[in-house]
Amino acid sequence: MWEYCGMARTEEGLTKAKGLIRELRNEFWNNVTVLGSNEELNMSLEKAGRVADFLELGELMVDDALHRRESCGGHFRLESQTEEGEAKRDDENFAYVAAWEYKGPDQPEVLHKEELVFENVKLTQRSYK
């Protein structure tokens, strides 16, 4: 995640990450062994459940990062930067909230959009020069 979905993201890296996450998930479900029983303080069990959920969320993160072909704030797509190397937004196409709907195991999630309306501030390129 750090390598491909961290501070700078590219289409290529994200696509690769998606494959890797799937592999990891398969590996996890095939190889996971949880020791101890259900009826006690059980660290392995606590962790196993949490990791399983993170592996699913990870894929959605990558999907979201792939679909947002602009840079904004903490999401930096190398393909979308200003000449000075700052994040370049695409307000025309991406001024919306991307809300994802779960459709079942291994089904692609469905994108819903909430358009962001700015009535009180003018959208500008951030500059901290």
């Binding site: 990891l24 996890f28 996971v32 062994t33 949880v34 392995s44 962790k47 196993a48």
Partner: peptide, 17 residues
């Protein structure tokens, strides 16, 4: 993160570490 007998590391994803 370690889970059961399977040591779970994002090894391929954090090669720099």
């Amino acid at each position: 993160m370690s889970v059961g007998t399977y040591t779970f590391r994002y090894s391929t994803l954090h090669t720099q570490f």
